[in-house]
Design a protein around this nucleic acid. Structure first.
Lengths: 234, 234
DNA sequence: ACCTGAACACCGTTCAAGT
DNA sequence: ACCTGAACACCGTTCAAGT
C-alpha cells in the first residue's frame, strides 16, 4: 500500500536485524517485512552491501563525541568507548564489517575526531594515521572477538583441543576473564594502546624500525614510509 | 573411487579456499572437488562450522613460536607477528572468525605461549589474561580491518560520505597510510599495546578504574573483577 | 559402513511483464 | 515510475534408499 522509500527500507532492516540477528536479514525477508516483492527493494537499493552500508551508517550516527578540551588521551578513549557501546549492541555489525566498505559518513566523524585530537596534540600526521588505524583495529577486533568467544576459553570441538592437559596456563588463567566486564576490558586495552602510542610518539618521529627487532621477522627493504613531516597547522 | 577421510576433506577445503576465496567454499563444491555427493561429506564432518574449525586448525599449526629466552615483549611480538603472517595469507579466516568457536588446539599453543611468557615475567594472572585477550583482539581486528580497507580511506558510497569537504584531517592524513606495509603497522601497534600494558602492570595490580575516567562512560557498580592474586608459580 | 538421489527450505539477483 | 511473477543459479542439511 505505502510507497517504498529508502528510510522505510533502512527502518525495516534494523527492525529485522534486531529481531532475528545478522543471519535473519535477507533481501527477501526485508521485502516481506515491507509487504512488497523481493525485486521491489532493488529499485531503491542497488545491493545487499549498499543496504548494509546504509544500516551501519544509521547506527554509527549514534556515536557521541566528547568535548575535545581535555587531555587528548581521555577524549579519544571517551569517543572510542562511545563507539564501542553503540556498535556492540548490534551484533550484525561485526559480521558486516568484513565484507568491507561498511565505513560511511558517520564513522568518518569518529576518524576525524581522533585524528584531529592527535594532530592538535602535536603528533605527526603519519604517526597519527598509524595510531588511529590501530585504535580502529582494536575496536573492530574487540567487537568480532566478543562475538566469537574469548581465545582459549571456548575451543572448537573435534580438533583435539580439549583445552585441558597441554595448556595449563590457559586453563588456569582463562576463568579469570569471566569476572570482567567487556566495557572495562576494552577500556583497559585501549588505554594501554594509547599510552604506548603516546610514549612512542614522544621518543621518536620515525616509524619503529631498529630498536628491539623481533628475531623471526624478516626485514623488508623497500618500504618507504612516505612523508612523515609535521602537519602545517599544528 | 577413493574412500573419503577427514584429511582428504581438509585438503580439498584448503585447495578450494585458496582457489576461490571465502565465498567459494561450499559443502556442495567441496563434495564436487572430491567427486562425491554433497551428503557424503556429512558422514565425516558434522557441520560446515566443524569443517571451518578443522581448516583453521590446520593453518594455525604453521604459527611459529620463538625461544622464550629473550625479553618477554620481544618474544610475544615475534609470536604474534608469526600468527599475523600465517593468518593474513588466508583471507577466509577473517570471515570465519566471527561465526565463532574457530579456536582450536593450534591457536591455544599461541595463547599458552603468550600467557606463560607474561606470567613468567611476573605479571598477575588476571592482568596477563587481560593483556593476552587485548593482543588477540588487536590481531583479529587487524586481519578483519585489512580485508575491509582502512577506516576513512574507503567510504561506502551512497551514504553521503564523499569523504572530502567535511573531514579535512581524514582527507589529509589518509593517504599517508598507503606508504606503510601492513606488517610494519601491525608490529608498531602491537608494540604500543604491549608497552602500555607493561607500564600498567608495573604501576598497579588492580584493573584500571579510578584514574582518568572518561566523561561519557557510566560507571558500572557490581562488576567484581575476581581474584587478582599472583600466580603461585611465578 | 559408506555413499547417492532427491528433496526441503532457503538465498541474492535479474528481467519481462503488468499498472 | 514503481512494482509483481517467475525464473536462474545457487546455498546447508536431511533422509530414505541403494551397495
Amino acid at each position: 500500500m505505502q510507497r517504498l522509500t529508502r528510510p522505510h527500507i533502512v527502518a525495516a532492516g534494523l527492525r529485522l536485524l534486531e529481531r532475528e540477528g545478522a543471519a535473519g536479514l535477507s533481501m527477501r525477508k526485508l521485502a516481506g517485512e515491507l509487504g512488497k516483492a523481493p525485486a521491489a527493494v532493488y529499485k531503491h537499493v542497488s545491493d545487499k552491501r549498499e543496504l548494509m552500508c546504509l544500516l551501519f551508517d544509521e547506527v554509527s550516527r549514534r556515536i557521541e563525541l566528547p568535548d575535545p578540551g581535555d587531555d587528548p588521551r581521555t577524549a579519544i578513549v571517551a569517543a572510542t568507548q562511545s563507539a564501542h557501546r553503540v556498535l556492540e549492541e548490534h551484533g550484525w555489525i561485526a559480521a558486516g564489517m568484513l565484507d568491507g566498505r561498511l565505513l560511511g559518513a558517520a564513522s568518518m566523524r569518529l576518524s576525524e575526531f581522533i585524528l584531529d585530537t592527535l594532530v592538535r596534540d602535536g603528533m605527526s600526521d603519519a604517526q597519527a594515521a598509524r595510531v588511529h588505524v590501530a585504535i580502529w583495529e582494536y575496536l573492530v577486533g574487540h567487537l568480532v572477538a566478543a562475538r566469537a568467544g574469548a581465545p582459549g576459553l571456548t575451543p572448537c570441538p573435534a580438533t583435539g583441543a580439549d583445552g585441558a592437559e597441554d595448556y595449563p596456563t590457559v586453563r588456569r588463567v582463562a576463568p579469570l576473564l569471566a569476572g570482567m566486564s567487556d566495557q572495562e576490558r576494552f577500556a583497559a586495552g585501549l588505554r594501554a594502546l594509547l599510552d604506548g602510542a603516546f610514549a612512542q610518539g614522544r621518543s621518536r618521529t620515525e616509524p619503529p624500525a631498529a630498536p628491539q627487532e623481533p628475531p623471526t621477522a624478516p626485514r623488508q627493504p623497500g618500504t618507504d614510509p612516505g612523508s612523515d613531516r609535521r602537519s602545517p597547522r599544528a
